[in-house]
């Protein structure tokens, strides 16, 4: 299974859609400093009030997470994961796979894990490129804090990929499955930071995995393992449960 996972990962990395997604992420890294060169006073004031931090770096982190990476997390996982198993069925390959000593549930786990790995690769490469490109271009940029905050958000990206794969096999049709996954992730992303805007709802929004991924925004000045590890563990657990549900649901798919 490990060998199959590795080969599937390599094959997915070579696909054109992966390269187009990578090009879009590179564009985002290059464009964001331009977008944030001179934010208007009302934007600076509002973000300073929401996150109790008047540092320009907090404005950057808000925009990077909310405007860029949360949108990436809503779209790219759907594009990468919504073909898992159903593409093989629709192209007539699933019957061939059924003759191999590998159950459909295990095949789903391998395909989803390799898709999560591709998402994580794209995600990590984007943050590393950002950490190299942003110093000197983004006011007050702190690479260490940036990488620590985004390492938590990466767990949300992996969860989103597992969710997209599971939702797609649960729906059973690729187009409709991608649409439902997109709507679900769009809703989670749309509500991810609501608890910061309306503090009365903060505790309730912690049920949203995408909020857990953005929890570093609570205290960028003092990021520590005690702040980052609990949401990371929660997201890792949610990802495992989501994949397990997908592995159970996928058994209904017929070749």
């Amino acid at each position: 299974m490990t060998r199959l996972l590795w080969l599937d990962y390599l094959a997915a990395l070579r696909e054109r859609k992966t390269w187009i997604a990578a090009a879009m992420l590179v564009y985002a890294v290059l464009a964001i400093p331009l977008l944030l060169a001179d934010p208007p006073p009302h934007v600076r004031e509002a973000i300073a009030a929401w996150f109790h931090d008047a540092d320009p770096f907090a404005v950057f982190m808000f925009v990077w997470i909310d405007l860029v990476m949360n949108k990436v997390v809503a779209f790219v996982p759907v594009i990468l994961a919504s073909g898992v198993v159903l593409r093989e069925r629709d192209t007539g390959v699933l019957g061939l796979l059924a003759a191999k000593p590998l159950t459909l549930s295990r095949y789903f786990v391998v395909r989803t894990a390799s898709t999560c790995a591709v998402m994580l690769t794209l995600y990590a490469a984007t943050q590393l490129l950002g950490a190299a490109w942003f110093p000197g271009r983004v006011a007050g940029f702190r690479p260490g804090t940036f990488l620590a905050a985004m390492s938590l958000h990466a767990f949300a990206a992996v969860f989103a990929t597992a969710l997209a794969a599971t939702v797609t096999v649960a729906v059973g049709r690729r187009g409709a499955g991608a649409l439902v996954a997109l709507m679900l992730l769009g809703l989670l992303v749309g509500l991810a930071l609501v608890g910061f805007y309306q503090p009365d709802w903060y505790a309730m929004t912690l049920a949203n995995p995408l909020t857990l991924g953005a929890l570093a925004m609570r205290d960028l000045e003092h990021l520590s393992p005690s702040l980052l590890l609990p949401p990371m563990l929660a997201l890792a657990g949610l990802t495992a449960v989501t994949i397990a549900i997908g592995a159970w649901v996928v058994r209904k798919v017929e070749a």
């Binding site: 054109r16 859609k17 187009i20 594009i79 919504s82």
Partner: peptide, 10 residues
């Protein structure tokens, strides 16, 4: 590839 199409559309 439909997923390339999906990406271009997004």
């Amino acid at each position: 590839d439909p997923f390339t199409g999906l990406l271009v559309a997004c």
